[in-house]
Simulated assay, not measured.
Amino acid sequence: MQDDLLVVGFDLETRREVHVAERPPEQWKRLGYGGTGQLVCFYCFHGFEAAVGTRVPLVTRGRLGGKVRRHFAHPAGHAPLGGHSPETVWHITTKHTLAAWATSRPGVDRVRLEQWTPDHDRRADVEVLLQDGTKVALEAQRQLMTDDGWRARHRDYARQGIVDVWFWRPRVHFPHIVLDEGLPVWFYSVSQRMAATSLGRAHARTDQWWKTPDLSVFGLHHPPCRLDELERVTLPLGALGLGAGGATLPEDLRKRLLESQREAQQEAKQRQASEARHARALRESRERAARAPAPTPLPPAPPGSLRCEVCHRPLDPLLAKNRRHILC
């Protein structure tokens, strides 16, 4: 099922967004179309492609394990003309899903939707305050952004000490400047309720590769570099962590990356140690030469005597043709 076919529910009694997987279909049937009517379309009620406050009770379709996943839908003839915008569906649902995910993460003190930054330059889709005081902005980005547009938003957040984490709609091209800034790229599928990201494959080991400041790039690494070959991974949103650096990979995947990087890091240490031993031996040799006493000057040679052109000692006339001692 594609994201643009989904409808998110809104419970008029609890005044909150609801998802079809939260309750058995029998309960939703009692609350939706043909029942009490308190389960309505979130988008219609909040004024997307309909007047604000429009109440359209929902039906539940599909079945668990079936070809069509269980989902909410408008009753026949009750949907807005042309349906809801796919971008609207994805953005609103992802924003609320990210807020619910952040609330469930350990170390989170507060989560709020649609909050302005202190200088009122930017409004985060989801503002998260961690218990250590770190502020995190979660952005659900449904459309392509230019490099300059994304960089301006990212640097505004950074200037105010806010960590920005971007989740992109699947199949939307993201600005590659994101990777240049050292940030991972996350995608979120509303229909599958799954997050995705890419790992960078190991870089080729070029000349003196062991002197590279970040040796992790010689194994699987995250985030990837701009020109890397990529390995895509998909995982439940709930498997991701959230900390002072933003969203984090689950422990088993982090271990896989560390294991992939370990061999290169060990070889680099061996090469660095070998270079250090060579440099130390050369330095000690030069120091010994500097401390050695000056050689005793040779006595002056009699006029007309032969000298070895190498050691400058007297040379037997038999060796005059070669102009040096046999061993010189």
Results as ranks from 00 to 15, higher is better:
residue 291 R to T: 09
residue 244 A to P: 14
residue 222 H to R: 09
residue 241 G to N: 06
residue 214 D to I: 08
residue 304 G to F: 09
residue 191 S to Y: 00
residue 60 T to K: 02
residue 168 W to N: 05
residue 302 P to E: 15
residue 11 D to H: 10
residue 194 M to H: 03
residue 297 P to L: 11
residue 86 P to K: 01
residue 28 W to I: 04
residue 63 R to C: 06
residue 25 P to N: 08
residue 56 V to N: 02
residue 306 L to F: 08
residue 164 D to F: 00
residue 221 H to V: 03
residue 220 L to Q: 05
residue 195 A to M: 08
residue 245 G to H: 11
residue 287 E to L: 09
residue 220 L to D: 04
residue 211 K to W: 10
residue 158 A to R: 12
residue 193 R to K: 11
residue 34 G to P: 10
residue 130 L to V: 13
residue 230 L to D: 02
residue 178 V to Q: 03
residue 132 D to A: 01
residue 151 R to D: 03
residue 47 G to Y: 10
residue 277 R to H: 12
residue 234 T to I: 13
residue 48 F to D: 02
residue 30 R to M: 10
residue 176 H to M: 13
residue 101 W to S: 06
residue 155 R to G: 03
residue 317 P to V: 11
residue 257 L to E: 05
residue 321 K to P: 04
residue 101 W to E: 03
residue 111 V to G: 03
residue 174 F to H: 14
residue 139 E to S: 05
residue 20 V to R: 12
residue 12 L to P: 05
residue 7 V to T: 10
residue 299 P to V: 04
residue 121 D to S: 14
residue 272 Q to W: 03
residue 111 V to I: 10
residue 70 R to F: 02
residue 320 A to M: 11
residue 113 L to Q: 06
residue 287 E to P: 00
residue 191 S to G: 07
residue 277 R to W: 13
residue 216 S to P: 05
residue 233 V to D: 01
residue 138 L to F: 06
residue 136 V to R: 00
residue 181 E to F: 14
residue 165 V to R: 03
residue 180 D to Y: 03
residue 243 G to Y: 07
residue 137 A to K: 00
